[in-house]
Design a protein around this nucleic acid. Structure first.
Lengths: 363, 363
DNA sequence: TTCCCACCTGGGATCGATTTCATACTCTGG
DNA sequence: CCAGAGTATGAAATCGATCCCAGGTGGGAA
């Protein structure tokens, strides 16, 4: 084993130890070109006797790229992004790549800074949940493969893997309308990204489909990083006492809504039905369980990484957008307004009905 | 702006554009040595006209290290590790470092592989939640600063930031004993790491302090990654009907226990009190709220990163272990056995009583 | 006037692995 | 017995930024 090295072991030293030249040692270890079996064995032996670790800096200086892949998310503490990162990491690690993780906190500037860092480190590719188009454009312009995840910035020249937000939202709201709700609130975080926009679109589409008029006042946009979301939700509910159901656009908003309803002693679902877009662990734990639009988040991460790896491997062709289908999971937080049993499906309180699993590819 | 570059812009090109030499351009951009103001301005202008991005591979080949810092965790989907990673990232980003994240899935071999990768990329330092001593030892031996987080492997030559597991567990179990519980179960994940071991130690210490005899049969070790933790918990509870309280060693175990109790219709806390070591969001959301030992996880990440940054900056001196104090938060999941009101503190159901916040340093 | 120092610049070595390229040896088939 | 394919090897160039050092200027002190 090692003997407490002070200086780093180089290929030259390995070569010397094996009684050959650096060129030959390189070939022996990399497996390129001709090397006699005997010498190859000697080199390999010398390498691990000395505890040789090849230097990626040197390697990527000569070659074209380090094996690093960048990932930019907006908030690591949000389980959604954590699961996404886990999926990405799984896929990358299996392919022998390392993941460099940057949290942009929803800021365009920080995302751009991350992108610049990835460029500097010659990242083989980058995955990002876009916050603006600048980062993607910078990377694409410099020839770095990019795959956008969860959202699309609209920048050209990159692949994307997203979830069908509009459809998920439409299914959810349609479910509420079917139950007889007529004053359904939607609570949002943001409408600058296409996730929020499309969920809103789905909410509207469901109303249109059902011939139920929309009211602009029933949509509450808290804005990213609200100071006191609970208070905003409270004020909103006070101002709209007729609301019988709330559709929350994501897990953060859902938590705020849930807590506020609990705080004011509203019985869910009797006084107010709730649906969350995004299904986290706690939604299965609370009583009643939250009806939710479940997104295949971990899988989205995996697939995005796989797409990126294919590009890194040199796959050409037009940019693709892979759209994953969410799954509507009915639990106990939805019923007919006022608690009347006008349910179409009987639905066991703990179970979930799958609806539209699979994926589509479109250019 | 850029004009769709195919080839990467080098310092030489910037120098040429500015009508000077590479050496001077380097000094101008890095701010080292003498450069005339006029030329410096020309170089800077040329650099961003061409969209120059310095190449870290080249830089770290010449210098001693890339600015990368490695982090090894055991399961990114576990909110505990996600929060830890977020804390680390926050601190590193502020200092201009990038974070390379590796998920070892609790496997020694994968941690070692990650360590080797960090060595290869000349990481400036590494943070890791140890799974064995091999990874730490390899890194330390090669002169890479290492800080262990959450656990200690026992390897020498590295700093560590941990949480006082024994004390947190003792406080929690003491609380149950004080309430009058005599058959308190402890459910664990593992006892190979010092977190599990110390929590068990705390459980025992609390019993000793109170003069209550221990029973080996009341400790259930599910093992890491149990196939069906719910079933194991169920079998355990069936075999030990006298249990009136459960102390869960971490959030994963707590969830399994909670779900199983709910499944079998046990009323918490009347039929069975529950305490979790580690306080996640859902524990505040469920009804009743879970009494928990809250760990400053995000902060632990920050502090570990800060410690590492100090080492990277060249700070010498003996290896330190920073022990953070957990906070006991009483919520509604604990009461006297059988629901009798033998409570010492009246305790509002939603509130939490702080106990021992702060930190200690020991060599 | 001379010397020294502070200021400024560019040449060239350097980091470590990869990758031509030139050389040389060993067979095989004609 | 030789051409040429196949096999092996090491010297040297290369990647891009850094940095030591030699060379050059100007101004102030001796």
């Amino acid at each position: 084993m090692g003997k407490g090295k002070r200086t780093r072991v180089t290929l030259r030293q390995v070569a010397q130890e094996a009684g050959t030249s650096a060129s030959t040692a390189s070939r022996a270890l990399a497996g390129n070109g001709y090397v006699a079996e005997a010498i190859k064995a000697r080199v390999v032996a010398a390498a691990d006797r000395l505890g040789y670790v090849p230097d990626v800096s040197a390697r990527s200086l000569k070659g074209r790229s380090s094996g690093l892949v960048g990932l930019v998310v907006s908030d690591l503490r949000n389980q959604f992004y954590a699961a996404l990162a886990a999926g990405v990491e799984g896929s990358l690690a299996a392919a022998g790549h390392q993941m460099v993780l940057v949290d942009d906190h929803g800021s365009d500037a920080q995302a751009l800074e991350g992108a610049r860092a990835f460029l500097a480190m010659r990242a083989a590719g980058v995955l990002l949940a876009p916050v603006g188009r600048a980062a993607t454009e910078l990377l694409v312009e410099h020839g770095t493969p990019v795959v956008e995840v969860d959202r699309r910035s609209g920048a050209r020249g990159c692949d994307a893997v997203t979830i069908d937000s509009e459809r998920g939202a439409r299914d959810a709201v349609a479910h509420l309308l079917e139950l007889g709700h007529r004053r359904i609130a939607m609570v949002l975080d943001e409408t600058m990204w296409d996730t929020g926009r499309n969920r809103l679109k789905g909410y509207r589409a469901a109303h249109r489909d059902a011939g139920v008029p929309l009211s602009r006042r029933l949509v509450l946009d808290l804005g990213l990083r609200p100071a006191d979301p609970g208070a905003d939700v409270a004020a909103f509910l006070d101002a709209n006492p007729g609301v019988t159901a709330v559709f929350a656009a994501n897990n953060v908003v859902a938590e705020a809504v849930w807590q506020e309803l609990k705080r004011r002693g509203s019985a869910v679902p009797r006084d107010c039905s709730v649906i969350s877009f995004d299904d986290l662990g706690w939604m299965r734990i609370v009583e009643p369980g939250l009806t939710a639009v479940r997104q295949p988040v971990y899988d989205m991460g995996r697939q995005a990484a796989d797409l990126l790896l294919a590009r890194i491997a040199g796959e050409r062709g037009r940019a693709q957008t892979l759209t994953l289908q969410p799954e509507f999971v009915r639990r106990g937080s939805t019923c007919a307004p006022g608690g009347t049993a006008r349910t179409a499906h009987p639905s066991p309180p703990g179970g979930g009905a799958a609806r539209g699993v699979g994926s589509d590819v479109s250019a």
